[in-house]
């Protein structure tokens, strides 16, 4: 049977492999190579060793600023999204009338694209700030807060759906037994419910964390990094390095390599830590 299947590899396997090779594998390894060169088009690359990587940190502080902004954004939005989403999931797994309607409403923003989301919230935040004589561009804190609110609005419903699916698998008998034994609600939450939904927590943390770090469209539409690149997150910073001025492509590619490593390390670390928690229980 295996041999039979392998005869059909040109139809079964080759199309996907070819597309993957051309749009991901080759660009990925070419990207690593180019991060050690100076280039404006791919063909004129000159090897320069670690020069680009040094430039990332010494040329100007923009990359470190973006890194710090992104880290702060990720920590705050990951925490707030998951707490709100989990709380909503707890409420919506209770016996409440019309819970499907609420579920539908809360999930809706997740279907709207990042660019559109950015302009929606720009209108609202500017409308509020106008009463005090400001706009979202007057202070980087406004942009920061705007991005956190936007991200919460977009992702709470998505994570809520995942938590609801997890909560529906919590063994009911255990909770009943604990109640009979006189355990308090908080104790049941921390000793039974949360350990039982640990797999959902792993996934939700993974999705919110990687989405927060990779955020681009929302950032571009809401503030585009203004004022003075102070609300520029990592993805936008790399984009601006590549396409903002000619001659910095090598530095842009070096930033992209650092960014990829960072995202991979954080994602794998988080998966390792929360998976370990899953097995402990």
């Amino acid at each position: 049977m295996n041999k039979q299947i392998r005869k059909y590899s040109p139809i079964l396997f080759l199309p996907v492999f070819l597309a993957f090779l051309i749009v991901f594998l080759i660009p990925f390894f070419l990207g690593i190579y180019l991060s050690f060169t100076e280039f404006t088009t791919v063909s004129d690359a000159v090897f320069v060793g670690f020069k680009n990587y040094l430039s990332v940190f010494t040329n100007s502080g923009d990359f470190l600023n973006s890194l710090w902004f992104t880290v702060r954004f990720a920590v705050i939005s990951v925490l707030s999204i998951n707490i709100f989403a989990f709380a909503l999931a707890l409420i919506l797994t209770r016996n409440i009338r019309g819970r499907n309607i609420y579920r539908t409403v809360f999930f809706m923003p997740n279907l709207i694209g990042g660019i559109v989301l950015g302009y929606i919230w720009q209108l609202i935040i500017n409308g509020v700030l106008y009463n005090y004589g400001y706009s979202i561009l007057s202070n980087p804190d406004f942009g920061f807060l705007g991005l956190v609110i936007l991200m919460n609005w977009q992702m709470i419903g998505y994570m809520m759906i995942i938590y609801i699916a997890g909560l529906q698998n919590v063994p009911h008998e255990q909770i009943e037994a604990a109640k009979v034994d006189g355990a308090s609600n908080t104790r049941i939450l921390f000793k039974i419910t949360i350990p039982a939904v640990m797999p959902s927590i792993t996934i939700c943390l993974f999705l919110t964390l990687t989405n927060a770090f990779k955020l681009f469209d929302q950032n571009l539409a809401l503030t585009a990094g203004a004022p003075a690149r102070q609300t520029e997150m990592l993805a936008l910073n790399i984009y601006n390095t590549f396409y903002g001025r000619v001659g910095a492509e090598g530095i842009g590619q070096a930033k992209a390599v650092i960014f990829s490593l960072l995202v991979a390390v954080i994602a794998l670390l988080q998966l390792y830590l929360t998976r370990r928690k899953e097995y402990e229980n």
Partner: peptide, 24 residues
């Protein structure tokens, strides 16, 4: 290649955007 597929899920688009669009 399966492991490479899985790996590609974590890599941010910015890593390949320049080289991919030039190649495309």
């Amino acid at each position: 290649t399966y492991y490479l597929f899985v790996f590609s899920m974590i890599v941010p688009f910015q890593m390949v955007m320049f080289t991919m669009s030039k190649l495309a």
